[in-house]
Amino acid sequence: MATRRTVLKGTAALAGAVVATTTGLAPAAQAHTGGGRPKANVLLVHGAWVDGSSWNAVTAILQRQGYTVVCVQLPLTSLADDVAWTRHVLAERLQGPTVLAGHSYGGAVISGAATGVPNAVGLVYASAFAPDEGETLGGLNAQFPAPPGLAFVQPDSLGFLWFDPAAIPANFAPDIPLADARVLAAVQKPIAAQCFGDPAGPPAWKSLRSWALVSTQDRMINPDLERFMAKRSGATTIEVRSSHASPASHPDKVAGLIVAAARAART
């Protein structure tokens, strides 16, 4: 039987083969304002059990407003892997000032990926973690009453965590259409359990301005934990009666925070 190590080695080998045949790709073009000044780019980072398509509604809103948007597809194999991949995408695919937005686990990723990066100009946390250096997501969760949705997380033989498909509509995304929630359950992307035990590195929110959306009906991250992290980071914060899936259920609110961050970067 394949082990988690051999699976990841195979994935890395495939990625290397693809890179070897696709060098020289041009980065996404940066959009400009009417006055000729470049708009900040937007890099969107998904969380656990979803992929970049979880940002589709937000992406469409931002593109209609003329923003250049790239959605990262995380490997979800470790926090270090995901931070490194996000930094790679930021360096390879975007030029100029860039706002990074993270949903859920993606908040931990952008906190590390934007640290020390000159063109990172703002952070947006949507129902997301914002750990300090040395903290783990499991440790942060333990500081507050456990959110009920975590009871439906199931480990597999390779050390990845899946979400019980039948529980996703009621716990992960109860405020999107039921048919969409069922699709979300079918296409979920598992996350390595170690991602919740990996200590975070130095966070970018200590040097960059940040914005946060707290989901008051979140069943995956305790809303009080979201409030604690937002306050600690000094984030401009809004509270929305939203489930954990705020980029899908309240894309206008999330996009509004991203636009606010992008506009602040030009002042």
Score class of each variant (00 low, 15 high):
Phe196Ala: 08
Cys71Pro: 06
Ala179Thr: 11
Ala128Asn: 14
Gly102Val: 11
Val259Glu: 12
Arg4His: 14
Gln217Trp: 02
Gly16Pro: 00
Asp175Asn: 13
Ala17Thr: 03
Ser207Phe: 00
Ser54Leu: 08
Ile168Leu: 15
Trp49Glu: 00
Gly52Gln: 09
Ala245Trp: 06
Leu94Met: 09
Thr68Met: 15
Val117Arg: 14
Ala80Lys: 12
Leu184Ser: 09
Ala114Trp: 03
Thr86Arg: 05
Arg87Ala: 04
Gln154Met: 11
Ala173Tyr: 01
Ser242Asp: 07
Gly24Ile: 01
Val45Lys: 12
Leu62Val: 10
Asn119Phe: 04
Phe163His: 11
Pro174Ile: 14
Gly122Gln: 06
Val109Lys: 12
Pro38Met: 04
Val42Ile: 13
His103Val: 03
Pro38Gln: 07
Leu184Asp: 02
Ala120Cys: 09
Ala12Cys: 03
Leu184Glu: 10
Leu76Thr: 03
Lys253Val: 00
Thr115Gln: 15
Arg64Ser: 09
Ser242Ala: 15
Pro251His: 13
Ala29Phe: 08
Ala26Phe: 00
Cys195Asp: 10
Cys195Arg: 08
Leu25Lys: 09
Asn222Thr: 07
Ser54Val: 04
Leu94Phe: 05
Lys206Ser: 05
Gly102Lys: 14
Lys189Glu: 06
Pro27Arg: 10
Val58Asp: 09
Leu213Gln: 06
Gly256His: 12
Ala170Met: 06
Val99Phe: 04
Ala261Lys: 12
Phe172Cys: 02
Asp51Thr: 14
Ala108Arg: 12
Ala212Asp: 08
Val214Pro: 02
Thr98Trp: 09
Thr86Phe: 11
